[in-house]
C-alpha cells in the first residue's frame, strides 16, 4: 500500500474536504481543562524550558530537577486545598475502569483524585470597595488582571511553575498560605467575618501572587456574605466569575445568590 493519503491525492474535492474537516476537528478547551482536573494535573506545569529535562529524568528514573520538586509542591498544595474545601473543590476518587489493562500486582499505582483549578491557581486580589476604597481596589484589580492569563489560554502557560520565584521556598510559602487560609476559615466558622477578612488582607499582602488566591477569593466572598456586605460580596462574585470562569468553586460561590 502506498502511504499517500486521500487528503493529498484525491481528485474529489468533497472527499478531501470531509477528511480535512475530520482531521482538524478538536475538543473545546473546556473539555481539556476538565480532563486535566480529573487527573489532578491542572497545577502541574510543563513549561517549554523546564519540562523536557524534568520529564527525561522522570522517564529515566533519575533524580528530578527543580521543576519536578515544584510539581510535587503543587500537588501537595492541591491536596491541602482538597482537604480544606472538601467536596466543593475535590470530588471523590475517580473510578478506574480497567478496560484495557491492569497494573501489575506489586506496582504502586496512583489513585487519582479530582482537583479544582481550571485556569491554574488563582489570580484574585483581596481588596473590595467596602474595605479599602476604590483606588486600592482598582490598583489591585489591575495587577490581578495583568497576572491573569487571557481566556482560552493554555493552562500549561499559566501554571505556577512559569511564575517568577517568590522570596520564600515553595514548600514553606505554600504552608504559610495554607495556614492563613485555614485561619481565615476558622475565623469565619467561629462567626468572626471581620477577622477572617483581616487575615485574608494579610494573605493578599504577603502573597500577592499566591498559589491559593482562588481559594482565598472564595473564603472572602463567604466572609463578606457572613458580614452582611452584599454589595461587596456581589462585586467580589463578579470578579471571581471573570477571573475564574471555569472554576470548580463557581457553584459554591454563586449559591449565595449575590450576583
Amino acid at each position: 500500500m502506498a502511504d499517500d493519503r486521500l487528503l493529498d491525492t484525491s481528485n474529489v474535492a468533497l472527499e478531501r474536504e470531509l477528511i480535512r474537516a475530520a482531521a482538524e476537528e478538536g475538543p473545546p478547551p473546556s473539555v481539556r481543562r476538565r480532563g486535566l482536573a480529573a487527573l489532578g494535573l491542572l497545577a502541574v506545569a510543563t513549561p517549554a524550558a523546564a519540562a523536557p529535562a524534568a520529564l527525561a529524568a522522570a522517564g529515566a528514573g533519575k533524580t528530578p530537577g527543580a521543576a519536578g520538586l515544584l510539581g510535587w509542591n503543587l500537588l501537595f498544595k492541591w491536596g491541602m486545598v482538597a482537604a480544606m474545601f472538601g467536596g466543593a473543590a475535590v470530588g471523590g476518587a475517580v473510578a478506574f475502569e480497567g478496560a484495557i489493562a491492569n497494573s501489575p500486582p506489586n506496582e504502586p499505582t496512583p489513585v487519582v483524585h479530582r482537583a479544582s483549578d481550571p485556569e491554574g491557581p488563582g489570580h484574585q486580589s483581596q481588596a473590595t470597595p467596602g474595605e479599602s476604597g476604590p483606588t486600592r481596589v482598582q490598583a489591585e484589580e489591575d495587577r490581578a488582571e495583568a497576572l491573569a492569563a487571557p481566556p482560552g489560554h493554555s493552562p500549561a502557560t499559566a501554571a505556577p511553575a512559569t511564575r517568577p520565584p517568590r522570596g520564600t521556598s515553595g514548600a514553606s510559602s505554600i504552608r504559610e498560605e495554607i495556614d492563613l487560609i485555614d485561619r481565615a476559615r476558622a475565623n469565619l466558622a467561629s462567626g468572626a467575618p471581620d477577622r477572617a477578612l483581616a487575615v485574608l488582607r494579610d494573605y493578599s499582602a504577603r502573597h500577592p501572587r499566591g498559589e491559593l488566591r482562588e481559594e482565598a477569593a472564595v473564603v472572602r466572598i463567604e466572609a463578606l456574605r457572613a458580614k452582611g456586605d452584599e454589595r461587596a460580596a456581589s462585586a467580589a462574585v463578579r470578579r471571581f466569575e471573570r477571573r475564574f470562569p471555569a472554576s470548580a468553586h463557581q457553584d459554591r460561590v454563586l449559591d449565595g445568590g449575590t450576583r
Binding site: L41, V44, P64, L75, T109, V112, H113
Partner: peptide, 25 residues
C-alpha cells in the same frame, strides 16, 4: 492528590509522585 495502593517506601516518595505527574501531564 496521589495515594499509593501498595505501599512501597522506595516508590511512594514525593519525588516519584512529582515525576509521575510531570510525565503524565
Amino acid at each position: 492528590l496521589f495515594q499509593w495502593r501498595h505501599e512501597d517506601p522506595a516508590a511512594s516518595t514525593p519525588v516519584r509522585g512529582a515525576q509521575h505527574a510531570l510525565r503524565l501531564r
